[in-house]
Amino acid sequence: MVKEIERAGFPVVQMCNLIPVAKTVGSNRIVPTISIPYPLGDPGTSKEEQWKLRYHRTKVALESLATDIEEQTVFRV
């Protein structure tokens, strides 16, 4: 899906846990998440911690869309 969206000309960032899969499939902008069932907030942590993590990673994802890249890039979180 990411590839089709990018083919249509949209910069697109994939937020996911299985980075090697995203790389193999051909996503160009990748932001890591923390797990499969809860990518953006571990229910074992406090609400505040979950919010901080989610806010931070979503912000990184937004900024990645405004970052020029030359090759497939996994953004640091």
């Binding site: 089709e4 969206i5 249509a8 949209f10 910069p11 994939q14 937020m15 405004a66």
Partner: peptide, 19 residues
């Protein structure tokens, strides 16, 4: 099928969360 909706609303960028 989704793309035309994004184009129609002049979306500039997309975030995809995958599990």
């Amino acid at each position: 099928e989704i793309i035309p909706y994004l184009q129609g609303d002049h979306v500039d960028g997309v975030i995809m969360v995958s599990t």
